[in-house]
Design a protein around this nucleic acid. Sequence first.
DNA 1: TCTTAAACGAGACGGTACGTCATGTCTTAAA
DNA 2: TTTAAGACATGACGTACCGTCTCGTTTAAGA
Lengths: 217, 217, 217, 217
Amino acid sequence: MEAEILARARGRKRDEATQAAILGAAYDLIAAEGYRALTMEGVAAKSGAGKTTIYRWWPSKAALATDAYVSHLNEEAPDPDTGSAIQDLRIAMRNLARSLSGTSGQVLACILGGGRDDPQTLYMFKEKIAGPRRAFGRERLRAGIASGELRPDINVDVVLDALFLPIYVRLMMGLGPCDDEWVDELTKTVLSGIANPPSATSAALPDVFVSAPSTAG
Amino acid sequence: MEAEILARARGRKRDEATQAAILGAAYDLIAAEGYRALTMEGVAAKSGAGKTTIYRWWPSKAALATDAYVSHLNEEAPDPDTGSAIQDLRIAMRNLARSLSGTSGQVLACILGGGRDDPQTLYMFKEKIAGPRRAFGRERLRAGIASGELRPDINVDVVLDALFLPIYVRLMMGLGPCDDEWVDELTKTVLSGIANPPSATSAALPDVFVSAPSTAG
Amino acid sequence: MEAEILARARGRKRDEATQAAILGAAYDLIAAEGYRALTMEGVAAKSGAGKTTIYRWWPSKAALATDAYVSHLNEEAPDPDTGSAIQDLRIAMRNLARSLSGTSGQVLACILGGGRDDPQTLYMFKEKIAGPRRAFGRERLRAGIASGELRPDINVDVVLDALFLPIYVRLMMGLGPCDDEWVDELTKTVLSGIANPPSATSAALPDVFVSAPSTAG
Amino acid sequence: MEAEILARARGRKRDEATQAAILGAAYDLIAAEGYRALTMEGVAAKSGAGKTTIYRWWPSKAALATDAYVSHLNEEAPDPDTGSAIQDLRIAMRNLARSLSGTSGQVLACILGGGRDDPQTLYMFKEKIAGPRRAFGRERLRAGIASGELRPDINVDVVLDALFLPIYVRLMMGLGPCDDEWVDELTKTVLSGIANPPSATSAALPDVFVSAPSTAG
DNA sequence: TCTTAAACGAGACGGTACGTCATGTCTTAAA
DNA sequence: TTTAAGACATGACGTACCGTCTCGTTTAAGA
């Protein structure tokens, strides 16, 4: 064990300033002209780093772009903890929408859009961006169920889909602003449901989902 | 005017077979290996056409891909009409998810992702794909409110966001399958809400949304 | 046959001006700073051509350099034809030495030296530079034998080695100038031999070559 | 002085085994795949040394290669002395050809070719390789003249050129093998000359060399 | 029929970026 | 103070596509 630690310590250390310059250059290029303008060559030139150095630490453009995005989230908003799962989720959604509405949101949109067909980009998105938020949301939803604030029969993952995914697509497709008002409406909708009269328990609903066929598409 | 028509009529006519071969090759390339694999060079080689010919008729890769997609569209599933707004929406969502889950859905996803910056691509998406479905959904939601099946105080557009947008993003980001099971869960979630105990009216909820601040992000 | 000719005629034709620009740039680079300074990148930049174009016509740096050298031999001296094989060979050797003594000789030296370990360079040298001269020399030697000017028992290829190879190595290793005087001395030496008294026929010599062992080296 | 000795003695001592490993690796790489395959990176990897260490002791690839060659030299074959100048020269040529035909000859050829522009390499060649052989040959030629075995009017240096230079260039350019048979043919050619009938004295020849002009080249 | 203009295949061309490799310098921790 | 490890800026490598541009052929309408 000690041997491994010692072995690891050999050689010149990673130059933090260079890494920062690379990430900064990458971020600027995306922000200025979109994901298509993000070239390894350009990043190398703008940052003053060698291409080798970039490839040493980021295996792909996707990895670099994702890291550039993540590293520029001006200190991530702290996970809310109001004691109410509903409030926490709403705040988390607002935070997400806000962070996506600024420059860094444009950057993210470029990354996701430009790298739509790049498996690595998607992986990085799931892992580094969506993942943490979902983990937080999942934890809060479970806490809400435990505290009796939320119904015990909800499908946690699907609730997370209903709450968070519209934010991403609205941003990416330019379908409208993700302001607090819209986020609150979305939260309220998913919270209260739309059926009238609101069912006392979910047990009353399932029969609706028995026989309906879907027509071919 | 007649002169122009005459002038236009001179010379060799556009070769329909060639156009079909080009669109077919483009579609196949996207379907087989994604939007990245769609290269003008590749389409020319696969279709037997010259690059000049492709550029003569399609100004960009996005235009070519869009045409390739449209030319391969199966006829749409008919709008459902079961008498129940909830059922109709569920069927419409299933239909959407199905049509996006096949090959042509993959092609569409690639196009949308790849052409995110292209206003024409987005316009086509809003007009041709999302628009009609939203119009149908809006109509059905209003009918459901009128019939008493749905609560009168819902925000129709936000409900449509909660119902349809997760489908698009799930498909485009490859976050998971859009099978009937997941669609039903989503429908049920939005229908019933998640709060416990389910509120009798939405009037009971708004106070939850008064004081909660969002932390900076 | 006609079909083949027609097939060949398809497509845009090779741009002679571009080829000339490329060869000129390559020649200049070698002449200015040696073979090491000859980079495909540099040639592309200096000539204004794309790298693709260079690689389309020359598979390697060696091929390009050789062609650049060959194309810059200001009109090759015509093959001499004085009626005497000895005179013709002497003139050919003088011509070779002269052409190797000028700038183009420096270029050749760079090519041969710099590409010494490159099989392609050697192949190009044999094929395009040494080959034609040897072919001429071989033909003249045979004519001299036929006319009785030269002895019938000489080994033509070895005579060519003795006459031409010293010129190349003297140039490449910088062992001394290849002026007319030296060339004439060399010619005279090979012509007359060095043995005393000159043997009437080669038949008198072979016994010298029977028993002598070589010591290990 | 003692202080200096002490100062010098400070720190880790130069590792002889490392130096040997470096030279061995360099030699092997040249022998295996030619001078091109000799990379500082490769030597470092193969020898287990750090690049810094190599650069500390050898300023250039040429220096390293030269050292690698010299350190692997077999002891030279002894100068022959049969009493016949012709035999001695023939044996010396065979010895040279043999020593250049082995692995170390390939290494030398690579070094010479690769380092053509390097004055030090050429100096080493002239001093260490060609020089001694020429000195020996010159001495023997003069002895042959004195003994009446060779004609008194020969140009000693040019004869040495005709005898030895083809061997070097044949090896370096890969124009063919330098086996005993070819060496003997070369010796015989220079010995006997090629003119027919063999001139009784060189005095009969010079007039051939009076008027012949060389055409421009 | 003959002309003429457009569409077409082929493919050469100037570029941009790719991802890899070797160079020679520098920095670190161990020996 | 030397060493092995290895990070670093530099710059060339050879390849893949881009979008533009000639070429000569093919087709079909108008003269």
